[in-house]
Amino acid sequence: MEFVFFLAAAVKAGTCLLYATLGEIISEKVGHLNLGVEGMMQMGAVIGFIAGFTFGNPYTAVVCAALAGAAGALIYGFLTISLKANQVVTGLTLSIFGVGFAAFFGKNFVGKKVPDAITTFFAPVKLPILGDIPYLGQIFFNQSGYVYFSYFLVIAIYIYLYKTKWGLNTRMVGENPVAADASGIPVDKYKYFNIALCGALCGLGGAFLSLVYISIYPVNVVSGRGWIAVALVIFAMWNPGKAMLGAYFFGALDIASFWLQQYNLPVSIYLFTALPYLATVFVLIFTSMRKSSNKKEPAWLGKNYFKEDR
């Protein structure tokens, strides 16, 4: 039974990663490697908390967090789409900006408690029927509404990317913007939309941490989880379904070191925190070794599209 609790905790720990990973998948599908995930999560976390603390309304808090993340993403978007700036450098800068932004605006809120109205709103709810399934019910269906919404998003984003015309166009822009442009797809509009969506999801992931995962606002609530999300995108091979599994796996690793303390293992528990990154490295190596035609990485990932006059 204890292990079931551990898995339920892993799902909770993985949820912030799941939001951010889904966002980064969308951004990378449209061809933009945004290394600003950490920054956008930080912006979402701090604005979400401030809005929640000030207004006490969970909806306002969550919407503000999503908008903050999207605003960060739009800075990145404007620089990389319209001004053709290097994606890696711009993304890193966005991360520096977001970390500074959260530290600055959050400093007066450190040590403050999440309002009760919000804590109650996001308290775990056991779903009827599903919640009674042995083991699985306890792990997946006795969670916060914030977690349930991420289940919905996984399905919604899968449908968006693979079953709708917009998703098809989005993927085409990421694979070959020249061809997409030639076939009349407004490349820049698709890029802006999807990058903003990525930011909103990263903002939601950050706010999950500051509104649901913790009860007292700490100095640095995201503390590097954004980089794990970047890793997860590769681990999940740009697939929303696999992102879900990967997020819970990485969530489990995230809490494993804490959980393993009680067993007096002969290895340093600090080494366990390296596992998500090691796992990602192995995925990177194996996917590149396979050299198969169904490489999942979007072909134009990281390259900007410049429409030359012809």
Partner: peptide, 12 residues
Amino acid sequence: FGTNETLFTLML
């Protein structure tokens, strides 16, 4: 193998 070095070095 042409492994993506941006993400590899980031993980390291």
